[in-house]
Design a protein around this nucleic acid. Structure first.
Lengths: 221, 221, 221, 221
DNA sequence: CATGAATGAGACTTCATTCAT
DNA sequence: GATGAATGAAGTCTCATTCAT
């Protein structure tokens, strides 16, 4: 799944990728992660960055060591293998998504929820191109895809359920189909923006999409 | 670009991936490839298959040699490097797309052209998942992406112009935006079908999309 | 030396390998080991087991830590190095052998002493294949052999003197040669039983050997 | 099996280990090996030497590279792994043994065959201590033992059948038992000579053994 | 055209050992 | 006594590429 779920916190702001990166840094307060050693943190942070920049296969353990100022031995003290670093990164984000989903109970009008969701996602997309590209890279590289198959599926159903939940509030009819179309549109735009077109008119496309869903009228034939 | 352009040949049929694969085989008559030796053909064919199955980085020259029943020396006689095999594969398909584009001058009603395009693409998608995944893999793997940057952009504008050309026949207004949306929808669906959802209702989604464009009414506000 | 000396204690029973293992446990009362901490004991015990099962080179300190439920730091608190664990294990057994030797003063008829010795050794052999294999492993692995060279020689002469002492009681003539042959036969059988033949008829061979020495008649030509 | 079978060639001389080593050198004329590249030969030769001197686990691929004046890549071009070098060495010798066995049809008096066998083996033993030690090392190192389990068993039965065949000519009764004892004596002496005693009186022991079998009288009770 | 021996850089990983706490 | 984070050397193996034949 290309999309990272958004979460409105008490101040109405959005948890963006900068927050996701915080999972591995000092501001994170989840009890599981709080005890993570600084060096391990650093490794996860650097690995995330390098995997995003160069791809998983083209990032060597030595690359990570050097950038993280850490010895090879230490990495293997904290992680079983290179693969397991990838898994830990991915799991961190997946857990974050799950947590967000549980936390976010919107009472807004459903069409506005869709609009909000679109805005959140595109805002993240613009801020963290590299991170989204990492996700795509991982999903289409057969080797890494295999490793993270389950999580990818988990994330997909997580997002789908969130979206379908909103459409159900609008109309139970065709909510499945509408969810698939909604997600396809967002993923397609992300894909084109990130990797296909040189100068993609993201703002224009975003506006079009928002208008579409703001004034959505469902044809119940 | 996820999308491989279709071409209606004189019999109204579609150039599918099976045809694309033919680029590398004896039936191909393009002037560029006509002189290609059988062995070189075989290498390109096998490399395409292996890159799709295992990814570029995880396919070794030896893998290709063994499957193609060819010696290492011979591969380096025909190709400067592993990269250049990838480039040649990609170029072959790009050239094919260009040729198709020049050849295909449809006189059909524009909305039917869109429907035809949708059907073509999804038909290819279903037949050649691996090949489409290869394209995605290459585009999101930073290393390979860099190598093929220009071609990726060339293909994107090729497709965009084809689509925009159709929308222009419907209405000059917003034809850009509509083209971007159309491409995004198709790419998004492909993406979700290929790599995200476990059991994607491709037929249902396709039908929805076809209905949308068959009866398209443009809001000219 | 493949052979672990036996000892008849006051009840006529034999000190078997189960007793040897006790060196490292609470029932041991030797003055050297009495003050040994429980954890150190445990480490020696586990190390013996792992060295026997996997060989010295293929047993890592971490393997020992995990199985002994002890931290790496603690092992290095008790032992200077991995080598020194091996040395301590070997020394423990050697000391035990020395102690046994000093303790065992048999007044039996010499040929019966030989029979007794044969029975003891084969009984141990059957009970503790792994332990005997460890001894062989250590003696033939050039690296470990070097470390324990002196002890190996010490044990050899210890055993040789014990055996020669018995043969001296039978006949002073050729007692050297007879001792070498006796030891060779026992070691050869052990070797074949432990490591060469798939289904070795140990009982049959043992009986043959016992008969040979029970009714030994020395040719004094 | 510690013992390498001997073979009387047309001049009554013995194929010693120096001949076995020739398997890997220019004098070998077996059609299978004649085509082996010089470099591959060299690697096998050097590996044999180093495994014998330092043990399998303590010989690194780099050690072999350096001594054989060959690149790491080349070794892996010829051998799948370090293990496979060991297997190839061992297999070479095993095949040699099989070939010798088939070739050697002695018409001598059986007791003299035994004497001949003893002399052959001890002659080899004295010439090639390191090689015999390698065999022992391999058989008692759990890791290598596992790898060569089958061959070890094959060799054992090969030797056993040879020996039993001779004893059968003397007396069918107890020929099994006598074979086991004979092999045990030889292996025991080898073991003691190679690895236990500092100054082993090999000549004296050998003479004793020869006398025993030269004038063997079987007790048929 | 065609082969495959040969190279050497660099990949992932293991491991004994040290040391601050 | 006890812990485990941290190190760095060394190990096995892979791989794109070159080149003599």
């Amino acid at each position: 799944m290309t999309i990272i779920m958004s979460k409105k916190d008490s101040h109405g702001s959005i948890i963006s990728y900068s927050k996701i990166i915080d999972i591995f840094t000092d501001r994170m307060v989840g009890f599981v992660l709080i005890s993570m050693s600084d060096k391990k943190n650093k490794v996860l942070q650097i690995a995330t960055k390098l995997f995003a920049e160069k791809g998983f296969e083209n990032t060597s353990m030595v690359n990570i060591c050097h950038e993280a100022n850490v010895s090879k031995g230490l990495i293997y003290h904290h992680f079983k293998s290179k693969e397991s670093i990838l898994i830990e990164i991915f799991t961190g984000v997946t857990n974050q998504m799950i947590e967000m989903k549980t936390a976010s109970k919107s009472s807004q009008e459903p069409k506005l929820q869709l609009v909000q969701l679109i805005e959140t996602i595109f805002s993240q997309l613009e801020h963290d191109k590299a991170f989204f590209q990492l996700n795509l890279n991982i999903m289409f590289q057969p080797s890494t895809r295999q490793i993270l198959k389950e999580q990818i599926e988990q994330r997909a159903s997580l997002l789908f359920n969130s979206v379908k939940n909103i459409f159900d509030q609008i109309s139970l009819k065709k909510s499945d189909l509408l969810s698939y179309m909604f997600i396809a549109e967002i993923d397609g735009i992300s894909l084109n923006y990130l990797s296909i077109f040189n100068e993609y008119p993201l703002d224009m496309v975003k506006e079009e999409l928002i208008n579409k869903y703001k004034y959505l009228r469902i044809n119940n034939d």
